Simulated scan of single mutants.
Amino acid sequence: MDAPSAPPTQAPPLQAHVADGLAGAIGNTPLIRLRRASEATGCEILGKAEFMQPGGSVKDRAGLGIIEDAERRGQLVPGEPGIVVEGTAGNTGIGLTLVANARGYRSIIVVPHTQSREKLDFLRMIGADLRLVDPKPLRDPGHYVNTSRRIAEELAAKGERVIWANQFGNLANAAIHEATTGPEIWAQTAGRVDAFTCACGTGGTLTGVARALKARNPKLRIVLADPMGSGMYSWIKTGEVKAEGNSITEGIGQASAVPGNLEHGRDSIDDALQVTDPEALEQIFELQQHEGISVGGSAGINVAAAIKLARQMGPGHTIVTILCDGGARYQSKIFNPEFLRERGLPVPPWLA
Rank of each mutant, 00 (worst) to 15 (best):
L171E: 05
S294W: 12
E178S: 04
V193M: 06
P7T: 03
K158G: 15
R150I: 03
N173I: 10
P337D: 02
N28Y: 13
S116E: 09
I222R: 09
E286N: 12
A306V: 04
V209N: 05
P346W: 03
P137R: 12
L22G: 11
Q53V: 08
I163S: 02
D270V: 10
E86P: 07
G292N: 06
V18D: 07
M313P: 02
A128M: 08
K242A: 15
H143V: 09
T9I: 14
D129N: 15
E39S: 11
P315V: 00
E184I: 02
E68F: 09
D129A: 13
G90P: 09
D267W: 06
K308D: 01
P8M: 07
E178Q: 15
L130F: 10
P78A: 15
G326P: 05
G231S: 13
E250H: 09
V111A: 13
L138H: 13
C324R: 05
L206E: 02
G300T: 06
M125E: 11
I307W: 01
N146L: 08
A187M: 10
R192D: 08
R106T: 13
D20N: 08
V258M: 11
V18F: 08
G82Q: 10
Y144K: 09
G104I: 09
H177I: 11
T202A: 04
G74T: 11
G253A: 07
E44H: 11
R35G: 03
A280I: 00
H317E: 05
H143L: 09
L224M: 03
K333R: 14
R131E: 13
R72N: 08
D270A: 13
I222D: 02
L273H: 06
R150E: 12
R161L: 09
E244P: 01
Q15S: 14
K48V: 01
A40I: 00
P141T: 08
A19S: 14
I109M: 02
A190R: 14
G93S: 11
R311H: 08
A255S: 15
A70Y: 03
G316R: 07
A304K: 04
R216V: 01
H143C: 11
N101C: 12
I94W: 00
I236C: 05
L96V: 05
V193Y: 08
T207Q: 10
T197V: 15
P13R: 07
Y105R: 10
E342K: 10
A25L: 13
N217M: 00
Q274Y: 00
E338P: 00
G24R: 03
I248V: 15
P141Y: 07
P278I: 01
G82P: 12
L123G: 03
T202D: 04
P8H: 05
V77S: 10
G74S: 13
P137S: 11
